[in-house]
Amino acid sequence: KLLSSIEQACDICRLKKLKCSKEKPKCAKCLKNNWECRYSPKTKRSPLTRAHLTEVESRLERLE
């Protein structure tokens, strides 16, 4: 599967780190437990900047 097509777990399953069936409108866990089942939009991760990478590398060197 391509990364862009990976389905996201519902908010509660993601928060509780449960295996989500990803069914809509309610996944199996939410249906069974009568929880409100919501699927928040995916958040875009910002790409690493060179400055951040350099900072992490220098912190790693100090720890070694």
Rank of each mutant, 00 (worst) to 15 (best):
K1H: 13
K1P: 15
K1A: 15
K1I: 06
L2I: 12
L2W: 14
L2G: 15
S4R: 05
S4Q: 10
S4A: 14
S4M: 12
S5Y: 10
S5M: 10
I6L: 12
I6Q: 12
E7N: 10
Q8H: 11
Q8T: 07
Q8E: 03
A9G: 10
C10T: 03
C10S: 01
C10I: 02
C10R: 09
C10K: 09
D11M: 03
D11S: 04
D11T: 02
I12S: 06
I12G: 11
I12N: 07
C13Q: 00
C13A: 03
C13D: 03
C13R: 05
R14H: 00
R14Q: 04
R14I: 03
L15D: 12
L15E: 11
L15T: 10
L15M: 12
K16Q: 01
K16N: 08
K16W: 04
K16A: 02
K16E: 02
K17W: 06
K17D: 03
L18E: 02
L18Q: 06
L18R: 02
K19H: 06
C20F: 08
C20M: 08
S21P: 04
S21V: 03
K22P: 07
K22I: 00
K22L: 05
K22F: 05
K22Y: 08
E23M: 13
E23H: 14
E23C: 14
E23A: 13
E23T: 14
E23G: 12
E23F: 09
K24I: 15
K24H: 13
P25N: 02
P25W: 04
P25A: 03
P25I: 03
P25V: 02
K26L: 15
K26T: 11
K26C: 14
K26G: 15
K26Q: 15
C27L: 03
C27W: 02
C27Y: 04
C27T: 02
A28M: 14
A28T: 14
A28E: 13
K29L: 08
K29P: 06
K29N: 05
K29D: 07
C30G: 08
C30N: 07
C30I: 07
C30K: 02
C30M: 07
L31S: 12
L31A: 14
K32H: 11
K32G: 10
K32L: 08
K32E: 10
N33K: 09
N33I: 01
N33D: 07
N34V: 13
N34R: 12
E36Y: 07
E36W: 04
E36Q: 10
C37Y: 09
C37M: 07
R38W: 13
Y39K: 02
Y39T: 06
Y39D: 03
Y39I: 02
Y39W: 06
Y39A: 05
S40A: 08
S40Q: 09
S40V: 06
S40I: 03
S40F: 05
P41Q: 05
P41S: 05
P41C: 05
K42W: 07
K42C: 08
T43R: 05
T43K: 04
T43E: 15
T43W: 02
K44N: 12
K44G: 00
K44C: 10
K44H: 10
S46C: 01
P47L: 00
P47E: 07
P47R: 07
P47K: 07
L48F: 06
L48H: 04
L48Y: 12
L48C: 05
L48E: 01
T49K: 00
T49I: 05
T49R: 00
R50W: 04
R50M: 08
R50Y: 08
A51H: 10
A51Q: 12
H52F: 07
H52K: 05
L53A: 01
L53H: 00
L53D: 00
L53E: 09
T54F: 05
T54L: 07
E55F: 12
E55C: 13
E55Q: 11
E55H: 10
V56K: 03
V56S: 00
V56C: 14
V56H: 08
E57Y: 06
E57T: 04
E57Q: 05
S58L: 13
S58E: 15
R59K: 12
R59T: 03
R59L: 06
R59E: 02
L60E: 04
L60T: 03
L60D: 00
L60A: 13
L60Y: 10
E61V: 15
E61Q: 12
E61A: 12
E61F: 13
E61R: 11
R62I: 15
R62D: 02
R62M: 13
L63C: 08
L63S: 02
L63N: 02
E64P: 08
E64F: 03
E64S: 12
